[in-house]
Design a protein around this nucleic acid. Structure first.
Lengths: 181, 181
DNA sequence: CGCCGCGTTGAGCCACGTCAACATAGGTGG
DNA sequence: CCACCTATGTTGACGTGGCTCAACGCGGCG
């Protein structure tokens, strides 16, 4: 097993139940899904710096399915158990709780607010004075994360583009204007 | 600081930012809120066996506000760092991820489904052949967790009672009929 | 007693879901 | 290269579930 992986948009990172190790997200975004029978339900989000699959250190297999929301770089994450009291494990735990709260917020309020919150999470740091680049996942992914329908998300994104908050840049890229967002 | 606490319905367990230690929930249910300015947003849920405030081991203070959704028994939780590679910390991490997924599911689908999912989480194990007792939190709490309004939750609960799935038992107690739920 | 927090219920409206038609981009095989 | 197909996104028309606003009942408490 190599110690770093490149994953591209929409690609499966790992199945639920499969054996594997934990990874840290160097860049990109990942959606986690709980798999029940043949149904998949959005169960969490991982962004740059977050760790996925930490439960493999305990069970040996993944609890969730992970799929890339954009191009991702993963590096193998071995619990630095060397630290007294597993400090990095604690940091991972704290980060996980924060992300979970972020994900919950994606499912509250009006459609427009939800999608904007999602974009804010996905936005990368802008170069000074520039708009923040953002890798837009498929509508289906966005709909499932926000708890809306594809049609509604499409309409919201259209409105954002028309109002100038979002600039189209190819099929899967847009720009967020700094001031407004 | 005593090593076990009794908390009753609606009571504050700890403020966000306050200093304190981590606790394990021996019984009851707790809602976690992210505090931004003077606003509080539902950010997580803790049930029997879950650990809250683990981040105090790292920061010394709580990241979220915690409030009892029913009567709770807490016991002090000291990270058993004695274990090689912090196994109990890993278990806590895994449990946190599962709970986060549960909380997310509370905000998806129709009102009726959401409230039922919430009740299923809050239900205690029934005595064999009996209905499952459940401590019902206030409507406001339920509304904020499910992302609905108080009025809608009230109507849903009414319908559940009329349909016999739920039996009233005093102001803050109900019964879930085993078969249906 | 009067006040206040909490729950209940009704009436009306609107944001979003549903259904349907169509556009566009990639992918695959001839 | 085109022909075809499928996945994905867009847009419109329409219906409805849940939000809003409002009135009221009830219990606890000073």
């Amino acid at each position: 097993m190599q110690s770093t992986r490149q994953i591209s948009l929409g690609e499966l990172i790992h199945d639920a139940g499969a054996a594997g190790i934990a990874w840290r997200l160097q860049s990109g975004a990942v959606r986690l899904d709980r798999v029940i029978g043949d149904e998949r339900h959005f169960a969490g989000l991982a962004l740059k710096g977050d760790v996925i699959g930490a439960e493999t250190l305990l069970f040996g297999s993944y609890a969730f399915e992970a799929r890339a929301l954009g191009d991702c770089t993963l590096e193998a994450w071995l619990d630095p158990g060397s630290q007294p009291s597993g400090e990095s494990l604690l940091q991972t735990l704290a980060a996980t709780e924060r992300r979970a709260a972020d994900a919950l917020a994606l499912r509250y309020g009006e459609a427009m607010e939800r999608v904007r919150r999602l974009f804010q999470l996905l936005a990368r740091e802008p170069k000074p004075g520039q708009a923040a680049p953002i890798l837009i996942p498929g509508l289906k992914d966005m709909a499932e994360m926000t708890g809306l329908t594809v049609e509604t998300v499409s309409r919201v994104v259209s409105r954002l583009r028309k109002s100038g908050l979002l600039q189209k840049r190819g099929r899967h890229a847009g720009l967020l204007l700094t001031e407004a967002f």
